[in-house]
Design a binder for these strands. Structure first.
Lengths: 226, 226
DNA sequence: TTAGTCTTCCCCCATTAGGGGTATATCTGA
DNA sequence: TCAGATATACCCCTAATGGGGGAAGACTAA
């Protein structure tokens, strides 16, 4: 299996890693790859930011647990100031919180430390083309979470929420209920009488099959009606 | 840039694509890659399922828009019956709905048709190691959606929801309010007097800085307290 | 020991919400 | 033209909620 990039400028890499043995191993692996150039290292989040912004590498290999500033925060800072610098998190932290926080911070890839060197090379090759890299250890989890989250944000087609569609006016009243307004307040806001608001409320509760405004508000929220 | 896999069995690939020219181009590209073996093709979703389950390729290159059954549904069926078969969606469909539906169906990677052949090779190499592949055209979108969705599911650190922590009992009462129970019902369920429930409600509303149960329920829901 | 928190309960009272019923005007589609 | 939906409004009445105040017992930490 051979992939050849011919006559391309070297991919410049900056290593941020506070464990010396890991750092040495990384440097050794990467410097042995033709076309790669390790242009710097740091053990410390804050220092890393400064140097990365100065040296402008193509790729940063970023540990998460660092001194003075964690790798996620450092990533956020770097991506804010230099979006074209690719950042691959390289860490033993395989918990959801760190994974998602890393991507929220703008990371382009996430590799676990038990990943083979080959995979890290592939990750680097992927991110320099703009692709995202999800390590074998986390890919399924991230992608399924992604599509799960998508499902959650959409009204379920399985349990019908509405027996009948709400009118525009009813939607308006319901929205204000969710915002925390009482009938008197809604009446005032919409220039109606309280009786009218109550009538609308009755229709809303009927259509949502609930018996009080609290249930109506909760149902509306859960169903994404408002 | 050279990656060599020595003495490995060929990566078997099955192509599902109804556009003839694209199919020919794919086959040509992949058969020219040492270590790759195209073991079959199909233009049709249903037929693809049968053949893939029969031939058991390592990787399926799957189009989305197919006849008789779309590629997403076919992917779902294949992954349900043979999880170790990797599926890369290869399509011009770059809308969120198809992307997320594909990952929900179990796809391991998603390539747009305008991607260079090189990227498709990388994608294949990635998924056979178990990694996930997010094409340059969609990586940022998917990952940011991922972390956005995560944020929505978590209490915001920006606006304090609780002035004071709710006690266990208060949480219990609040949970039942969100479920739609009134004070009398809650009292009955928890074997308390209504007066007690009202007292708890007062404390809850105080701590959440709201003036009625509806606001409390909405706030609790939005903040992920329940 | 004391102070603070949590849990339970009670009283008083005013306001709000909700169930039930009724009516009119307007608009739209069959 | 008629029926149905929507919007507005009113009446009666009861139930529920919530603001205010107070108290006692159990537990924990300083």
């Amino acid at each position: 299996m051979i992939l050849v990039m011919e006559n391309a400028p070297p991919v410049t890499i900056f290593i941020v890693e506070d464990h010396e043995i890991t750092r040495i191993g990384l440097r050794l692996l990467l410097e042995n790859m033709p076309g790669y150039s390790v242009i710097g290292e740091s053990t410390d989040g804050k220092q890393a930011i400064k140097q990365v912004l100065e040296f402008k590498p193509n790729v940063v290999i970023m540990d998460v647990g660092l001194t003075s500033m964690d790798g996620i925060s450092a990533t956020k800072e770097i991506k804010a100031k230099a979006q074209n610098i690719k950042v691959i998190m390289f860490t033993s932290h395989d918990n959801d919180e760190d994974i998602f926080a890393s991507f929220a911070a703008g990371a382009d890839g996430y590799c676990l430390k038990d990943t083979p060197g080959n995979s890290l090379i592939m990750a680097i090759n992927a991110v320099i083309t703009g692709a995202g890299w999800l390590d074998p250890g986390i890919a399924t989890r991230v992608l399924s979470h992604c599509s799960d989250a998508r499902d959650k944000a959409m009204p379920s087609n399985k349990e019908p929420v509405l027996n009948f569609p709400l009118s525009d006016r009813e939607m308006e009243v319901l929205r204000l209920v969710v915002e925390g307004l009482g009938n008197q307040e809604i009446a005032h806001k919409l220039c109606l009488s309280v009786e009218t608001v109550k009538t609308h409320m009755r229709h809303i509760m009927e259509k949502l099959s609930v018996s009080d405004r609290t249930q109506a508000a909760v149902k509306a929220l859960k169903a994404g009606l408002v």
